[in-house]
Computed example of a mutant assay.
Amino acid sequence: MPDPVVPARATCDLRAATPARVALGRSGASLPTRPLLDFTLDHARARDAVHAAFDAARLVAKLRELGLAPAEVMSRAVDRGEYLRRPDLGRQLDAASAEVLARTATEPGRLAIVIGDGLSPTAVHAHALALLKSLLLRLAAEDAVAICHVVVASGARVALGDEIGAILGARMVVMLIGERPGLSAPDSLGAYLTFAPKPGRTDAERNCVSNIHQAGLSYDEAAHKIAWLVREGLARGGTGVALKDESADRAPRRIGTASPGGTESGAKMSSS
Protein backbone atom coordinates (compact mmCIF):
# COMPACT_ATOMS: atom_id res chain seq x y z
CA MET A 1 0.00 0.00 0.00
CA PRO A 2 1.42 3.42 -0.92
CA ASP A 3 2.19 5.95 1.79
CA PRO A 4 -0.56 8.59 2.34
CA VAL A 5 0.04 11.93 0.65
CA VAL A 6 0.41 14.65 3.31
CA PRO A 7 -1.11 18.09 2.48
CA ALA A 8 1.15 21.13 2.29
CA ARG A 9 1.54 23.29 5.38
CA ALA A 10 -0.59 26.19 4.07
CA THR A 11 -3.46 23.79 3.46
CA CYS A 12 -3.07 22.30 6.93
CA ASP A 13 -3.37 25.81 8.36
CA LEU A 14 -6.66 26.17 6.49
CA ARG A 15 -7.95 22.97 8.09
CA ALA A 16 -7.40 24.50 11.52
CA ALA A 17 -9.62 27.45 10.61
CA THR A 18 -12.69 25.61 9.34
CA PRO A 19 -14.69 22.44 10.02
CA ALA A 20 -15.13 22.02 6.24
CA ARG A 21 -13.58 18.97 4.62
CA VAL A 22 -10.44 20.38 3.01
CA ALA A 23 -6.95 18.92 2.61
CA LEU A 24 -8.00 15.41 3.58
CA GLY A 25 -5.01 13.89 1.85
CA ARG A 26 -5.14 10.69 -0.15
CA SER A 27 -3.91 7.14 -0.08
CA GLY A 28 -3.46 5.98 -3.64
CA ALA A 29 -6.74 6.80 -5.39
CA SER A 30 -8.75 6.94 -2.17
CA LEU A 31 -8.99 8.79 1.12
CA PRO A 32 -6.81 7.87 4.09
CA THR A 33 -8.58 5.72 6.65
CA ARG A 34 -9.10 8.42 9.29
CA PRO A 35 -10.89 10.98 7.01
CA LEU A 36 -13.02 8.17 5.57
CA LEU A 37 -14.10 7.01 9.02
CA ASP A 38 -14.80 10.61 10.08
CA PHE A 39 -16.98 11.13 7.02
CA THR A 40 -18.91 7.93 7.70
CA LEU A 41 -19.51 8.94 11.33
CA ASP A 42 -20.66 12.47 10.44
CA HIS A 43 -22.96 11.13 7.74
CA ALA A 44 -24.52 8.76 10.28
CA ARG A 45 -25.00 11.64 12.76
CA ALA A 46 -26.74 13.70 10.08
CA ARG A 47 -29.08 10.83 9.21
CA ASP A 48 -29.84 10.25 12.89
CA ALA A 49 -30.66 13.94 13.35
CA VAL A 50 -33.17 13.87 10.48
CA HIS A 51 -34.92 10.77 11.82
CA ALA A 52 -34.74 11.66 15.53
CA ALA A 53 -38.00 11.63 17.50
CA PHE A 54 -39.40 15.03 18.44
CA ASP A 55 -40.37 15.21 22.12
CA ALA A 56 -42.99 17.95 21.84
CA ALA A 57 -44.52 17.17 25.25
CA ARG A 58 -41.21 17.68 27.04
CA LEU A 59 -40.63 20.95 25.19
CA VAL A 60 -44.10 22.18 26.12
CA ALA A 61 -43.40 21.37 29.79
CA LYS A 62 -40.10 23.28 29.70
CA LEU A 63 -41.79 26.28 28.12
CA ARG A 64 -44.39 26.29 30.88
CA GLU A 65 -41.57 26.42 33.40
CA LEU A 66 -40.54 29.70 31.73
CA GLY A 67 -44.00 31.11 32.44
CA LEU A 68 -45.24 30.66 28.87
CA ALA A 69 -48.48 29.00 27.76
CA PRO A 70 -47.63 27.10 24.58
CA ALA A 71 -50.11 25.45 22.26
CA GLU A 72 -49.17 22.13 20.66
CA VAL A 73 -50.04 21.51 17.01
CA MET A 74 -49.22 19.15 14.15
CA SER A 75 -48.87 19.47 10.41
CA ARG A 76 -50.73 17.23 7.96
CA ALA A 77 -47.77 14.85 7.77
CA VAL A 78 -48.91 11.82 9.75
CA ASP A 79 -45.42 10.47 10.47
CA ARG A 80 -41.75 11.19 9.86
CA GLY A 81 -41.63 9.19 6.67
CA GLU A 82 -44.48 11.14 5.10
CA TYR A 83 -42.97 14.38 6.35
CA LEU A 84 -39.75 13.66 4.44
CA ARG A 85 -41.53 12.45 1.29
CA ARG A 86 -44.16 15.20 1.20
CA PRO A 87 -42.74 18.63 2.11
CA ASP A 88 -46.07 20.22 1.14
CA LEU A 89 -47.85 18.48 4.03
CA GLY A 90 -45.37 19.95 6.50
CA ARG A 91 -46.48 23.43 5.42
CA GLN A 92 -50.13 22.87 6.34
CA LEU A 93 -51.81 22.44 9.73
CA ASP A 94 -54.04 19.47 10.29
CA ALA A 95 -57.69 20.32 10.88
CA ALA A 96 -57.67 19.63 14.63
CA SER A 97 -54.64 21.87 15.18
CA ALA A 98 -56.21 24.71 13.21
CA GLU A 99 -59.28 24.49 15.46
CA VAL A 100 -57.11 24.55 18.60
CA LEU A 101 -55.34 27.71 17.45
CA ALA A 102 -58.57 29.38 16.40
CA ARG A 103 -59.91 28.92 19.94
CA THR A 104 -56.78 30.47 21.50
CA ALA A 105 -56.70 33.47 19.12
CA THR A 106 -58.75 35.73 21.38
CA GLU A 107 -57.25 38.93 19.98
CA PRO A 108 -54.48 39.91 17.52
CA GLY A 109 -50.95 40.41 18.82
CA ARG A 110 -47.62 41.54 17.54
CA LEU A 111 -45.33 38.55 17.88
CA ALA A 112 -45.89 34.79 17.80
CA ILE A 113 -43.08 32.30 18.38
CA VAL A 114 -43.33 28.89 16.71
CA ILE A 115 -40.88 26.11 17.59
CA GLY A 116 -40.90 23.36 14.98
CA ASP A 117 -38.91 20.16 14.64
CA GLY A 118 -37.95 20.72 11.00
CA LEU A 119 -35.25 18.55 9.50
CA SER A 120 -33.33 18.25 12.78
CA PRO A 121 -35.33 17.64 15.96
CA THR A 122 -31.90 17.15 17.54
CA ALA A 123 -31.15 20.85 17.00
CA VAL A 124 -34.42 21.94 18.58
CA HIS A 125 -33.86 19.81 21.67
CA ALA A 126 -30.30 21.08 22.01
CA HIS A 127 -30.73 24.81 21.42
CA ALA A 128 -34.31 26.12 21.21
CA LEU A 129 -34.90 26.71 24.93
CA ALA A 130 -31.55 28.39 25.56
CA LEU A 131 -32.02 30.64 22.54
CA LEU A 132 -35.57 31.52 23.56
CA LYS A 133 -34.46 32.50 27.07
CA SER A 134 -31.90 34.89 25.63
CA LEU A 135 -34.41 36.22 23.11
CA LEU A 136 -37.02 36.92 25.79
CA LEU A 137 -34.51 39.05 27.67
CA ARG A 138 -33.58 40.95 24.50
CA LEU A 139 -37.18 41.63 23.54
CA ALA A 140 -37.99 42.90 27.02
CA ALA A 141 -34.81 44.99 27.38
CA GLU A 142 -35.98 48.22 25.77
CA ASP A 143 -39.38 48.81 24.25
CA ALA A 144 -40.88 45.59 25.59
CA VAL A 145 -42.10 43.48 22.70
CA ALA A 146 -44.31 40.93 24.41
CA ILE A 147 -44.94 37.54 22.86
CA CYS A 148 -48.65 37.02 22.28
CA HIS A 149 -48.50 33.30 21.48
CA VAL A 150 -46.03 30.41 21.65
CA VAL A 151 -46.68 27.29 19.56
CA VAL A 152 -44.85 23.95 19.40
CA ALA A 153 -45.32 22.30 16.00
CA SER A 154 -44.56 18.71 15.01
CA GLY A 155 -43.85 17.75 11.41
CA ALA A 156 -43.13 21.39 10.64
CA ARG A 157 -41.64 23.12 7.63
CA VAL A 158 -40.78 26.82 7.76
CA ALA A 159 -43.94 27.89 5.93
CA LEU A 160 -46.15 26.25 8.57
CA GLY A 161 -45.52 29.39 10.62
CA ASP A 162 -47.40 31.42 8.00
CA GLU A 163 -50.68 29.60 8.56
CA ILE A 164 -50.15 29.58 12.34
CA GLY A 165 -49.46 33.32 12.41
CA ALA A 166 -52.47 34.06 10.21
CA ILE A 167 -54.87 32.10 12.44
CA LEU A 168 -53.49 33.78 15.57
CA GLY A 169 -53.63 37.25 14.01
CA ALA A 170 -49.95 37.92 14.72
CA ARG A 171 -48.27 40.82 12.95
CA MET A 172 -45.04 38.83 12.87
CA VAL A 173 -44.07 35.22 13.40
CA VAL A 174 -40.65 33.89 14.38
CA MET A 175 -40.14 30.23 13.53
CA LEU A 176 -37.34 28.43 15.41
CA ILE A 177 -36.69 25.23 13.51
CA GLY A 178 -34.11 22.49 13.02
CA GLU A 179 -32.14 23.06 9.83
CA ARG A 180 -31.15 20.41 7.32
CA PRO A 181 -28.16 18.64 8.94
CA GLY A 182 -24.74 19.11 7.42
CA LEU A 183 -21.75 16.82 7.77
CA SER A 184 -20.15 19.27 10.19
CA ALA A 185 -23.30 20.42 12.02
CA PRO A 186 -26.15 17.94 12.52
CA ASP A 187 -27.72 20.16 15.23
CA SER A 188 -27.98 23.58 13.58
CA LEU A 189 -31.01 25.70 14.53
CA GLY A 190 -32.48 28.42 12.33
CA ALA A 191 -34.82 31.35 12.99
CA TYR A 192 -37.16 32.59 10.25
CA LEU A 193 -39.01 35.89 10.64
CA THR A 194 -42.08 36.76 8.56
CA PHE A 195 -44.11 39.97 8.78
CA ALA A 196 -47.87 39.72 8.21
CA PRO A 197 -47.76 35.91 7.96
CA LYS A 198 -50.29 34.18 5.75
CA PRO A 199 -50.27 31.09 3.51
CA GLY A 200 -48.44 31.76 0.26
CA ARG A 201 -45.61 33.88 1.64
CA THR A 202 -42.30 33.20 -0.12
CA ASP A 203 -38.77 32.94 1.23
CA ALA A 204 -38.07 36.38 -0.27
CA GLU A 205 -40.47 37.76 2.34
CA ARG A 206 -38.57 36.29 5.29
CA ASN A 207 -35.38 37.01 7.19
CA CYS A 208 -33.28 34.09 8.38
CA VAL A 209 -30.75 33.81 11.20
CA SER A 210 -29.08 30.44 10.72
CA ASN A 211 -26.26 28.21 11.99
CA ILE A 212 -27.17 28.56 15.65
CA HIS A 213 -25.20 25.83 17.44
CA GLN A 214 -22.17 25.36 19.67
CA ALA A 215 -19.62 25.78 16.87
CA GLY A 216 -21.67 28.43 15.05
CA LEU A 217 -23.66 31.50 16.09
CA SER A 218 -24.01 31.75 19.87
CA TYR A 219 -27.37 32.13 21.61
CA ASP A 220 -26.66 35.74 22.59
CA GLU A 221 -25.49 36.69 19.10
CA ALA A 222 -28.49 35.04 17.50
CA ALA A 223 -30.92 36.57 20.00
CA HIS A 224 -29.45 40.04 19.36
CA LYS A 225 -29.97 39.66 15.60
CA ILE A 226 -33.48 38.22 15.95
CA ALA A 227 -34.61 40.92 18.41
CA TRP A 228 -33.23 43.65 16.13
CA LEU A 229 -35.03 42.18 13.12
CA VAL A 230 -38.27 41.85 15.11
CA ARG A 231 -38.20 45.50 16.18
CA GLU A 232 -37.20 46.80 12.77
CA GLY A 233 -39.64 44.54 10.96
CA LEU A 234 -42.53 45.73 13.12
CA ALA A 235 -41.48 49.35 12.78
CA ARG A 236 -40.99 49.25 9.01
CA GLY A 237 -43.86 46.91 8.27
CA GLY A 238 -41.91 44.26 6.39
CA THR A 239 -39.32 41.50 6.38
CA GLY A 240 -37.27 39.68 3.76
CA VAL A 241 -35.66 41.61 0.93
CA ALA A 242 -37.25 44.76 2.36
CA LEU A 243 -35.31 44.42 5.63
CA LYS A 244 -31.54 44.23 5.60
CA ASP A 245 -29.84 42.93 8.74
CA GLU A 246 -27.91 45.92 10.09
CA SER A 247 -27.98 44.77 13.70
CA ALA A 248 -24.20 45.13 13.99
CA ASP A 249 -24.25 48.76 12.86
CA ARG A 250 -27.37 50.40 14.25
CA ALA A 251 -29.24 50.69 17.54
CA PRO A 252 -32.65 49.02 17.57
CA ARG A 253 -35.64 51.20 16.74
CA ARG A 254 -38.12 51.87 19.53
CA ILE A 255 -41.48 50.43 18.55
CA GLY A 256 -44.08 53.18 18.34
CA THR A 257 -41.69 55.91 17.11
CA ALA A 258 -42.01 57.48 13.70
CA SER A 259 -40.99 55.30 10.79
CA PRO A 260 -38.83 56.62 7.91
CA GLY A 261 -42.02 57.53 6.04
CA GLY A 262 -43.17 59.70 8.94
CA THR A 263 -46.04 57.50 10.17
CA GLU A 264 -46.50 56.18 13.65
CA SER A 265 -45.53 52.49 13.93
CA GLY A 266 -47.60 50.12 15.96
CA ALA A 267 -49.88 50.23 18.98
CA LYS A 268 -49.47 48.90 22.48
CA MET A 269 -49.23 45.13 22.37
CA SER A 270 -51.44 42.75 24.25
CA SER A 271 -49.63 40.27 26.48
CA SER A 272 -52.35 37.66 26.05
Rank of each mutant, 00 (worst) to 15 (best):
D48R: 15
D48A: 14
A49I: 00
A49G: 05
A49V: 01
V50F: 04
H51K: 11
H51L: 14
H51G: 00
A53S: 12
D55P: 10
D55Y: 09
A57L: 10
R58K: 12
R58I: 00
R58Y: 02
L59C: 06
L59R: 07
V60D: 11
K62N: 13
L63G: 03
L63E: 08
L63S: 04
L63W: 12
R64M: 10
R64S: 09
E65G: 15
E65L: 14
E65S: 11
L66W: 12
G67M: 10
G67F: 10
L68G: 03
L68N: 05
A69Y: 11
P70D: 05
P70E: 06
A71W: 04
A71T: 08
A71C: 12
V73H: 02
V73T: 03
R76E: 14
R76Q: 15
A77C: 12
A77T: 02
V78P: 02
G81E: 14
G81I: 05
G81R: 15
E82K: 10
E82P: 03
Y83D: 02
R85L: 15
R86E: 13
R86I: 00
R86H: 14
R86A: 05
P87K: 13
L89W: 09
G90Q: 11
R91A: 07
Q92T: 01
Q92C: 04
L93H: 02
L93A: 01
A95G: 00
A95S: 13
S97R: 03
S97G: 05
A98M: 01
A98I: 00
V100D: 01
V100I: 14
L101D: 02
L101A: 06
L101Y: 03
A102I: 01
A102S: 11
T104K: 14
T104P: 00
A105W: 07
A105L: 09
A105P: 10
T106H: 13
T106S: 11
E107N: 06
E107W: 04
P108A: 07
G109A: 12
G109M: 03
L111I: 05
L111H: 02
A112M: 13
A112E: 07
I113H: 06
I115H: 06
G116C: 05
G116Y: 08
G118C: 08
L119T: 00
L119S: 02
P121T: 00
T122C: 07
T122I: 00
A123F: 07
V124D: 08
H125P: 05
H125R: 13
